[in-house]
Design a protein around this nucleic acid. Structure first.
Length: 259
DNA sequence: ATGGTCGGCCTCCGA
């Protein structure tokens, strides 16, 4: 059994104590991090190694930044999403660990939609789809996890009508997300919980957390070879309720051992 | 109620 999770930590520097405690508590094998918000050299590698984790880090000053943590070595790493070689934003890292190809994804937010940020988001999603198609050709266990900044369905936001013009929910965004799934990827949470309203992100402002007015935007996408082994998938709301919390909370899945 | 909440950062930008 391997346990794989994804968590947008909104600064690894601030969140390190939470991350270390959560890894200890949950015995997670692979944790995909987003928004580490530091350059690679400033990532707290020694502390995580001290807790038994290997790391592959793609950092950036102030913004973005992704990483893979694993109890096993991480090999054959890829540190940028193919296409648009001029794109310098640290939003993608991929590697093989625990016998599984994994990627940590921080998909662009895309707001405001009348700026160049929205077409960048849609181009990034097209690049991800093209790359996922290549990865799927290997016909191996594959988990593409991260902060997709996509609300897939009305059930994934408490007031969907208020979000129709937002980059996270616009029809074009949701269609682009479905186009990725339609390659043959399984969205782990929705597959195991078809009708549940459950969120992975709550805005810091106002009553969003206390009133459970959140978004489900962090996702785990599985190739057929991974989906055949999918045992469980849950959102852990615990970390969001702590002091100095990230605005996102972890979502994890377990895969049974290969047959 | 022209704010509200964070984190990083050339004092505002991005979420």
């Amino acid at each position: 059994m391997v346990k794989i999770a994804t968590w947008n930590v909104n600064s690894i520097k601030v969140r390190l104590p939470h991350v270390l405690a959560w890894l200890e508590e949950t015995q997670t094998d692979v944790l995909l991090l987003q928004e580490i918000k530091c350059i690679t050299e400033n990532f707290p590698l020694l502390e995580l190694q001290g807790h038994g984790y290997h790391a592959e880090v793609v950092g950036q000053k102030a913004y973005n930044g992704v990483a893979i943590l694993s109890r096993q070595p991480i090999t054959d790493t890829v540190t940028r999403l193919p296409g648009e070689p001029e794109d310098e934003q640290a939003r993608y890292v991929e590697g093989t660990t625990c016998g599984i190809r994994v990627a940590s994804i921080y998909l662009p937010n895309g707001n405001p939609v009348d700026s160049d940020k929205y077409p960048y988001k849609l181009r990034w999603m097209a690049r991800l789809r093209a790359h996922a198609l290549n990865l799927l050709e290997a016909e191996q266990p594959l988990v593409l996890g991260g902060d997709y900044n996509v609300i897939p369905m009305p059930e994934d936001v408490h007031n969907p009508t208020g979000w129709v013009n937002d980059a996270l929910y616009k029809p074009e965004t949701r269609m682009a997300f479905r186009a990725i799934l339609n390659l043959g990827l399984t969205e782990a949470f929705r597959t195991l919980h078809p009708t549940t309203h459950a969120y992975t992100y709550w805005d810091y402002q106002g009553i969003a957390w206390s009133a459970d007015q959140g978004l489900r935007i962090d996702h785990l996408l599985l190739s057929p070879q991974a989906a055949d082994r999918l045992n469980a998938c849950e959102i852990d709301r615990g970390p969001r309720g702590k002091e100095k919390a990230s605005d996102h909370t972890p979502i994890w899945c377990t895969l049974d051992d290969a047959a």
